[in-house]
Design a binder for these strands. Structure first.
Lengths: 335, 335
DNA sequence: CGTCAATACTAAATCGATTAAGTGAGCTGC
DNA sequence: GCAGCTCACTTAATCGATTTAGTATTGACG
């Protein structure tokens, strides 16, 4: 067997530079206490030896884990949004040398007790999800992507996309294109973003004296449910526009609409509250909201870092950050 | 501020049980060296205090990180397969107390030097991906999901799905349904699985004296490319069956086919080499290969654990595990 | 009774970094 | 000429668990 590769330690750097480990540590961390000469010598030798500090030892010393846990809703593998947001979190974490791990949904027991992490990011917390309660009980700093649906659950901060603006923009566009009876298909699971879209839709309808036409679809049965919801909306013959919540479900809507003879962009307008590359290439292309999930994930991580870095500091109220959204208008909402 | 919560340490357990830290450690780890009485007392007290060992300290002592890194191909957020496989890895890792982290694609520099992990799982390594080389140069034990496309790259093990069987089964089904000129749309990126499907398709055609009709589509432009490829295949008027590689791209194939007046399942048969829930609910439903990605991910993790646990042991050849696949026949390949 | 061995423990070193406390040299100011 | 101070460093404690080496007690046996 090859001689086991042993990484260079601070001790070796210190010996090589003929200083104590403490001096070497001061030099490398940029803290005062060593002369410029010594600092430069240490830095040079560290670079030559290819020294890089042992994260585990640093973590032990500072009694942190260096790990940030991320919790995603269940049954969302089909939604590219979540993977993009996760990679956004990872990109931001990389810069600060933190490790990101995903919390499994299955094995309920282990989390009940302890999660080996310094902080937690929960993306799209769902009212119905029992795991969310447990995770909050762990006493970790928590930042959510979108708000906690139950305001009794206090968290350290939340990054929130501006769904209200994009929803209004889409509904206005529907109206401008000639729609008189727009409907929405929302998620059965109650999450902050879908609830806020629904609220915004109700308000918009109320302002215009229209009936709200709302159908729901469960995430784990999204194709089946959306198909059923679409049929219900279209078969009455009056609904002339549909805002579907996810990029996947709008495909189902489009499919059923085509089967039942509706011409999308002409006598039926559709849009999705979450964009994905496929929507731009459909025929006709489909209007959708670009949520910029990578950027969103990065912001969640950055906020959590702010929280972690100011742990000892004065207790400020929960942080909140509103992120703008952008509607990409395409053929499905009129030319 | 609330008194900072400090987890129970081994020292506290030991003091509470009136034994040394070493004795407590022996008792808890189940190693000989303490009497049954003492062991039970320590276990009881540990349970009462809610002791759970500090992972970071254990890792430092054993000079491991407790972290397994996972590398996914770029631009695959739209493919639920990868997220499912990742969760499979995580589920398996949870059982052995390991942490899973994803390797970011962006920041090239950091990985060049070091990756803070005990081992690495690379899912679908791509010949064109320069990161893969770098990652292999890190000297970590590596297990791949699907084979390394370049056999010069040696790894500790590989978990491989049996794409040959499923591909043959689909092609045979095309033929049984009446197809005389089946085609495939493969990935531009050269990965083991798509290459093996392509090879299998060529062999199958050769055996029957048919021309191979092969088009390619890049992952990052999959919708556009697949549409172009489909047009090319269908516009010559002879192609009567298409095997598309991904669940997403088969939708594009179906869309274009419908636009150009082909009736899927009647005068055009289609299938996908990767299944996803949406395919079962399409109209008509689409035949696809169930790769059971969660199970696949678990197997990757289990193999890596075997490798890590036998680090010191005799050098065996690289491990290989062939996982069966299952074709789910649906309406798109004939009634 | 003395020797040897086994049992059940304790003391201390270790993993690799950070950091509080301590030391000696050199300089200032009165 | 010396108290007092700063600077540049070293020593040693620390984080929490594991593990090696060492010690005291017991029992067996010739």
């Amino acid at each position: 067997m090859a001689p086991k590769f042993r990484p260079v330690t601070l001790k070796q750097v210190a010996e090589s530079a003929r200083v104590s480990r403490a001096a070497a540590s001061f030099a490398l961390s940029g803290r005062p206490g060593v002369s410029e000469d010594t600092r430069n010598r240490v830095l040079k030798i560290a670079a030559e030896l290819g020294y890089s500090p042992n994260q585990t030892a640093q973590n032990l010393r500072s009694s942190r884990t260096g790990i940030v846990a991320v919790y995603l809703p269940e049954n969302v593998s089909a939604l590219g949004y979540y993977m993009e947001a996760t990679f956004g979190i990872i990109d931001a974490a990389e810069l600060s040398g933190r490790t990101v791990t995903l919390v499994p949904h299955t094995n309920g027991a282990p989390h009940a007790t302890r999660l080996n992490a310094d902080g937690l990011i929960i993306i799209d917390p769902t009212l119905e999800d029992p795991h969310v309660d447990k995770l909050l009980g762990l006493g970790l700093p928590v930042v959510t992507g979108e708000e906690m649906p139950d305001p009794n659950h206090r968290v350290s901060g939340a990054v929130i996309a501006d769904h209200a603006s994009s929803t209004r923009a889409i509904l206005d566009r529907f109206a401008a294109a000639g729609s008189r009876a727009p409907a929405i298909i929302t998620t059965k699971e109650r999450m902050s973003w879908s609830m806020s879209i629904e609220r915004c839709y109700r308000d918009w309808c109320a302002e215009r004296g229209l009936d709200a036409r709302i159908e729901v679809s469960a995430m784990d049965l999204i194709v089946e449910d959306t198909r059923r919801a679409t049929r219900k909306l279209l078969d009455d013959g009056t609904t002339d526009a549909i805002l579907a919540l996810t990029d996947g479900s709008v495909l189902t809507v489009a499919g059923y609409a085509a089967e039942s003879g509706r011409r999308i962009g002409k006598d039926l307008f559709i849009a999705a509250a979450v964009d994905s590359p496929v929507l731009g290439y459909m025929n006709p292309s489909v209007t959708a909201v670009d949520l910029n999930p990578r950027d969103f994930g990065q912001r969640c991580m950055n906020m959590l870092e702010r929280v972690l870095d100011s742990e000892q500091a004065e207790v400020q109220g929960p942080l909140t950050e509103l992120v703008p959204t952008r509607v990409v208008f395409r053929d499905s909402t009129g030319a």
